[in-house]
Computed example of a mutant assay.
Amino acid sequence: MNTKDMLPLTEAFYYILVSLYASSSHGYGMMQDVERMSEGRVKIGAGTLYTALNNLMKKGLIIPSNEVETDSRRKTYSITPLGKQVVMAEMERMEELLCNGRKITQFREEECT
């Protein structure tokens, strides 16, 4: 499957994948990362998070991590190479949207690349 066939990502999926891009994390850590990255605008509840994690695993975008947590109840997750490709494709898609909107509305003087 082509990575672009997996787009667009929901905002929750996007932020979860971005939060895992640099390092593995557990659910609560992801929830905190998403809230911090979005400056409090996006808050993912536990039910939404675990539904999203299951969907992302089914799509092959994340996997359970082998990292050992100090709290054995916490499951950690890692992004897959495919997950990283999908994040990059989504960022390109969003940049195109933003660039086209700026061209039309003349929101900013800078040229898009």
Rank of each mutant, 00 (worst) to 15 (best):
L49V: 07
E90S: 04
A22R: 06
I16W: 02
Y15P: 02
Y21Q: 07
S65G: 06
L20Q: 04
R36A: 13
K59C: 05
K103S: 11
E69H: 09
M30A: 12
E92A: 14
K43G: 06
F107L: 15
R102G: 10
D33P: 00
A46T: 13
F13M: 06
E11A: 06
E35N: 15
R93H: 05
R102T: 13
I62C: 02
N54H: 07
N100Q: 12
E110Y: 07
Y21A: 08
D5Y: 07
K84N: 06
P64D: 05
D5M: 06
M1L: 05
S23T: 13
F13Y: 07
K43S: 15
G29W: 03
R36H: 12
M6V: 02
E96H: 13
E92M: 13
N66T: 09
L56H: 00
R108C: 09
Y21C: 04
C99E: 13
L49S: 10
N100H: 11
G47W: 03
T3P: 13
G83I: 04
A12E: 08
L49T: 08
L20S: 03
I104L: 15
G47V: 11
I62L: 04
A12F: 01
R41K: 15
Q106A: 10
L53P: 01
V42P: 03
K103G: 07
G45R: 10
S23L: 10
M57A: 12
N66K: 08
S78T: 11
G47M: 09
T70G: 11
Y14E: 12
S19E: 03
K43T: 15
T105K: 10
T10I: 02
L98M: 14
V86R: 00
S78L: 05
Q32Y: 09
L53G: 01
M1S: 08
S78G: 02
G29N: 07
M94A: 11
R36D: 14
K103M: 12
R102D: 11
I104K: 14
L9F: 00
M88W: 04
N66R: 07
K58Y: 00
S65Q: 02
E109V: 12
E69P: 10
K4T: 12
A52V: 01
G101T: 10
D33G: 03
L17H: 03
C112Q: 06
Y21R: 08
T70S: 13
Y21I: 07
M88S: 11
R74N: 11
F13I: 00
S24T: 15
L56V: 01
L7M: 04
K43Q: 15
N55I: 04
L98S: 12
M31A: 13
S24I: 09
E92P: 03
Y50A: 01
K43E: 14
V18K: 08
M88Y: 06
R108I: 12
V34E: 02
N54S: 14
N54D: 10
T48R: 11
E96Y: 12
E69L: 05
P81F: 08
T51E: 12
S19Y: 00
V18Q: 08
N66C: 03
A22C: 05
M37C: 03
C99M: 05
M30N: 04
S65I: 04
D5A: 13
Q85S: 14
V68L: 13
G60R: 00
Y21H: 09
Y28Q: 15
L97R: 12
E111T: 13
A89R: 03
Q32I: 13
L98F: 11
S24W: 13
R73H: 07
K84T: 08
R41M: 09
T80P: 07
A22H: 08
T80A: 05
P64W: 00
S65R: 01
S25M: 15
